[in-house]
Amino acid sequence: MNNSVESRDTSNPLLVVQEVNKSFGGLTALSRVSLQIQSNEIFGLIGPNGAGKTTLFNIITGLYSADGGEVNLAGQALLRCKPHVIVQHGLARTFQNIRLFANMTALENVMVGRHVRTHRGVVGAIMRNTSTRKEESAIRAQALQLLDEVDLATAAEHLAKHLSYGDQRRLEIARALATEPKLLALDEPAAGMNPSETLDLQQLLRKIRASGITILLIEHDMRLVMQLCDRIAVLDYGKKIAEGSPAHVQQHPLVIEAYLGGNLA
């Protein structure tokens, strides 16, 4: 932390992670990690394998509980919230090892994402009254719209498990967007994509940011990270070793050491 150059304006952070600790058994996965993500930026989180990126991710999104520290999203404390409550507060995520609803269609996957912003219950479902029908057709329309935005409109009726790897990644993004997040957290969205798919992804993420959504990105593809992110934090052995602009991070001695002459672009 002390080695990183304090970055730009910190007056309006969307997500504040403060001194988060986590250990599994005797193994320290995260030690006093702090970050701030500003509204409407694309924030990259990188680090070698096992650095604790996904652990931090799972703590922020409520799947793991932290041993200590604080996480705030737009002033809302997130720690100790159930995952579904965190989504309500405006944080949606994707998974490193794609977790779609495999036997549902692409369209249905995205429609599930609308769950948290819609309200009709059992009685409405059985009676199918006007308000339920309205809500249902709105869900469908919005889901189709989102599929269209990620270029999957033609695959709407395909089962998620039959989609190609890249399509599944984009479907996961569409499903997360359906929850109307303030912050979209992506866990290695380019993993397994070929270069042209990665390029499309880059454009998609820019488009999403342009629509006013902040993005937190874990990624191994350094070229993508360096081209896309406004700021980057680097984790190594559960500690943040650097934070700042791509150029700053690339020059950082600790980062270079951590990657040991790795393929840092």
């Binding site: 999104t61 799947l63 159930k82 995952p83 579904h84 989504v87 309500q88 949606a92 995520r93 998974f95 977790r99 779609l100 609803f101 599930v112 994402g113 769950h115 948290v116 912003r117 499903r175 997360a176 929850t179």
Partner: peptide, 9 residues
């Protein structure tokens, strides 16, 4: 897990 990450209680 994915369901709860999509905001389903």
């Amino acid at each position: 897990v994915a369901a709860s990450a999509m905001g389903i209680n």
